Computed example of a mutant assay.
Amino acid sequence: MTNLFSSFDPSTNLNTSLNWLSTFLGLMLIPSAFWLIPSRMNFLWMKIMMTLHNEFKILINADKIKGSTLIFVSLFAMILFNNFLGLFPYIFTSTSHMVLTLTLALPLWLSFMIYGWVNHTMHMLAHLVPEGTPPVLMPFMVCIETISNVIRPGTLAVRLMANMMAGHLLMTLLGNTGPMLSMVMLNFLIFTQLLLLVLESAVAIIQSYVFAVLSTLYSSEVN
């Protein structure tokens, strides 16, 4: 039996990392007419983008920095596309690797921290001690808040990676049992796989939304 995680191996038969190019498949698959001629799909997509923009605008309080929500809307769109792309057969799921998720989370968090500590030092120091904390607990609270702040990019990256990998792994495990089952059990297995596919579609949307919203909330703390 091959390694259980071999389906997540990014290398191809040529031992190159061409599978990572699946991240940019959207640019090749979506025709220019989608952007040039307003269609129902276009209106639906713009409606989703505007809803996210308005929601992030409330979270980030973006009156001072116009258009700052666009980076989070773009982040949501990119992660959503890659999550959905991984549900198709024989297409590499780039978001199931820490290389991609940490690359998205770490620079964002680092830029927020540098901006916050350089421009709003007192505000950032005040965040380390929650309001109403007894003086005795203040040193402990500073340690706890510092640790929780430092692990934020890790939790963002691991959450997305683990959720993407878990569902795909379960579907792979169930799919491998197919040849050994009877016809009745095979029908039941196909039904279960379809339900799992629906669940994974929901997870793909939810995880991209969670990543974008948490990034927005982290940025709002440094303003």
Rank of each mutant, 00 (worst) to 15 (best):
V203K: 01
V184T: 15
L196C: 02
E145P: 03
L128K: 07
N187V: 00
G154L: 15
T121H: 10
H127Y: 10
Y115R: 12
L186P: 00
L173G: 08
V158H: 05
W117D: 02
P153G: 06
S111K: 07
E131F: 05
L125D: 10
P134W: 00
I114K: 15
V142C: 06
L196M: 06
T146L: 11
V142G: 02
G116S: 02
M161R: 06
I144M: 15
R159F: 13
R152G: 13
P130T: 01
P179K: 02
F188H: 11
P153H: 03
I144D: 01
A202W: 09
F191P: 07
S148F: 13
R159V: 08
L194A: 06
G167Y: 07
H120G: 02
S111M: 14
A157V: 10
S201I: 08
L173V: 09
W109D: 00
R152H: 10
A157R: 01
P139G: 09
A126N: 15
F191W: 09
M171H: 02
G178P: 10
L125W: 07
M180W: 08
L199A: 11
A126I: 02
L110S: 14
G167P: 00
F191N: 12
P134V: 00
M124F: 03
T146I: 13
N187S: 07
S148R: 10
I114Q: 10
L169Y: 14
L196F: 03
G178K: 13
L189K: 02
Y115H: 11
F112L: 03
G167H: 05
T155C: 07
V203M: 04
A162G: 05
P153Y: 04
C143R: 09
V129A: 01
L173E: 02
E200A: 05
V136P: 02
H123A: 09
M122A: 14
H127F: 07
H123Q: 14
A162W: 11
G132S: 00
M185A: 15
H127S: 06
L125E: 14
V184H: 15
P135H: 13
I190D: 08
M164F: 03
P179E: 01
P130N: 04
M180V: 02
H120C: 02
M113I: 09
L174D: 03
H168G: 05
A202K: 03
M138N: 06
T133L: 00
V129W: 01
G167K: 03
G178A: 15
N187I: 03
L199Y: 08
F188L: 11
V184M: 09
L197T: 11
A162P: 07
P134C: 00
M164L: 05
V184W: 06
M122W: 12
M185S: 13
T155R: 08
G178R: 12
C143D: 03
V198N: 06
E131P: 01
H168D: 05
G116P: 01
R152S: 13
Q193G: 13
L156K: 01
P179M: 00
M165K: 10
V198Q: 07
L125Y: 11
V184A: 11
T121I: 07
M164D: 12
V118M: 15
C143F: 12
V142P: 00
Y115Q: 06
R152A: 13
V136A: 15
L174G: 05
P134H: 00
I144E: 05
H168C: 06
